[in-house]
């Protein structure tokens, strides 16, 4: 149990660090959102679950926190992405396609 908890915490923090790196390296806000959301969601879930394995009395609260993060994190990312798009932030220059802009142009 303790070993599994340690492994989960390590993997989680590794993903968190990779997410941070993604935030620095990606070219525009949409790609950064991609890196940020996925890495921090799984990373945080893993760290929280691992911590709960080390201290079993908080397992139930940890499960609730994990479910909340899994539901709320994508919503906030989508909202930021949508408001960035509506707010006029352009896609990175190397982007290949934009169906949404086409749509609004034809309307």
């Amino acid at each position: 149990m303790v070993i599994l908890g340690n492994i989960l915490i390590f993997i989680g923090s590794l993903f968190l660090a990779l997410g941070g790196l993604g935030l620095i390296r990606m070219p525009d806000v949409y790609n950064r959102l991609q890196a940020g959301t996925k890495a921090t969601t799984l990373g945080a879930m893993s760290v929280i679950l691992g911590s709960a394995f080390l201290a079993p009395e908080m397992l139930t609260k940890a499960v609730l926190l994990i479910v909340f993060i899994a539901m709320a994190n994508p919503v906030s990312s989508s909202t930021i992405g949508r408001s960035a798009y509506k707010g006029g932030v352009p896609l990175a220059s190397r982007s290949v396609r934009d169906d949404w802009a086409k749509e609004e142009a034809t309307e």
Binding site: A72, V75, T79, R82
Partner: peptide
Amino acid sequence: DDDGGFVLQAGSLALLPF
């Protein structure tokens, strides 16, 4: 002028009780 988008609307309604 804007309703916040479907994801935010449904998401906030789903999370509100919790």
